[in-house]
Design a protein around this nucleic acid. Structure first.
Lengths: 191, 191
DNA sequence: ACCTGAACACCGTTCAAGT
DNA sequence: ACCTGAACACCGTTCAAGT
């Protein structure tokens, strides 16, 4: 690993350990064994370093979704697995999840970040499209349903993170809410 | 307005004008005409001041939802109006919207903030329940559907704010996505 | 090419003191 | 009860200098 990669890894570890506020350039440099302004030789600013962390995490999510899509499980299970990838990431790495989906000021940085994010969400969309092709989910134009499903999952994840909504649902898991939604979409008003 | 209320209003204005980073205690104090540490006589910390802004905004949202619920429009329009309240607030006051729904570290502060948030979301839930009572929306246990609808709206709002997803949908508005979802829920797999 | 050390202009927070 | 001014320990960023 070169210095830039080690800085990215150190920033990711600090995000996990102490959240956004813990990622000071002094702490990142110290973890890697360089001075507090060495990062400026590899990244234009602290935000660009964070964007590089997000870029690496989008690549990792895309890989996981590719695996889910290629698995031999039932279509509904593949869809729930795909959503679970996002849910688990948000629980294991909450600060890094927020970096991916809750930071408009960072979303536009790095030039390649927007493309990497599109690739990752494209993999998720392909799994939803598979679910539509098998008749599990209703057909819609383009990737509308994928966007609605991901938006709902993201909304439930945020609600869980902020402790705002979930406690009063009686749902043991975000996945319960997503199962209910999928059943409502598949079954319509009859259910 | 007493000093505490003027500090809250000044913080809200700074959030609108320059985002979270613009809300320094020095800027807030200066806007009100007091010193940069006078806020500590009214709030325990900068975060508690921000929580007070969030508390006021939740009260305002609850008022708007009450008005929507009492209006004489069609049930579907009332539901779309209710969702539009959140969408418009997120566009007119993005930093303040993020304070309400994207800041787990602030959600737990102030003691009354969690209650105010519950009251506001309860008003939204009542509008959804009205939609279920009229047969527009499928019946579910408790307020499950309200949570799913709000989570989806929040997810689409976040997606628009981060510029991540909406550009490639061809949707002119977040409301378009919400209309599609409501129609899918009402009509089921047939659509 | 890559890094360091000192410096600058900020920031939240604390504290002693004033009315 | 409410406020001020100085001070403290931080922070991101810049810059001149070193190899």
């Amino acid at each position: 690993m070169n210095t830039a990669e080690r800085l990215i890894a150190a920033a990711a570890d600090l995000l996990d350990a102490g959240g956004d506020a813990a990622v000071t350039l002094r702490a990142v440099g110290s973890a890697v064994g360089v001075s507090h302004n060495a990062p400026y030789k590899h990244f234009a600013s602290r935000d660009e370093l964070l964007a590089a962390v997000a870029n690496a995490d989008f690549h990792a999510l895309a890989d996981e979704w590719r695996k889910v899509r290629a698995s031999d499980r039932e279509p509904e299970q593949r869809l729930l697995d795909a959503l679970d990838v996002a849910v688990r990431f948000s629980r294991d790495h909450p600060a890094r999840y927020r970096l991916l989906f809750n930071r408009p000021d960072i979303a536009g940085l790095g030039e390649s970040l927007a493309r990497t994010a599109d690739e990752a969400l494209g993999e998720f969309g392909a799994i939803v499209a598979d679910g539509q092709a098998t008749g599990l989910l209703p057909a819609t134009d383009g990737n509308e349903l994928a966007i609605l499903l991901f938006a709902t999952a993201h909304g439930l994840i945020d609600a869980e993170a902020s402790g705002r909504i979930l406690p009063k649902t009686g749902w043991p898991e975000i996945g319960t809410g997503l199962q209910i939604l999928i059943r409502l979409l598949a079954g319509g008003a009859r259910s």
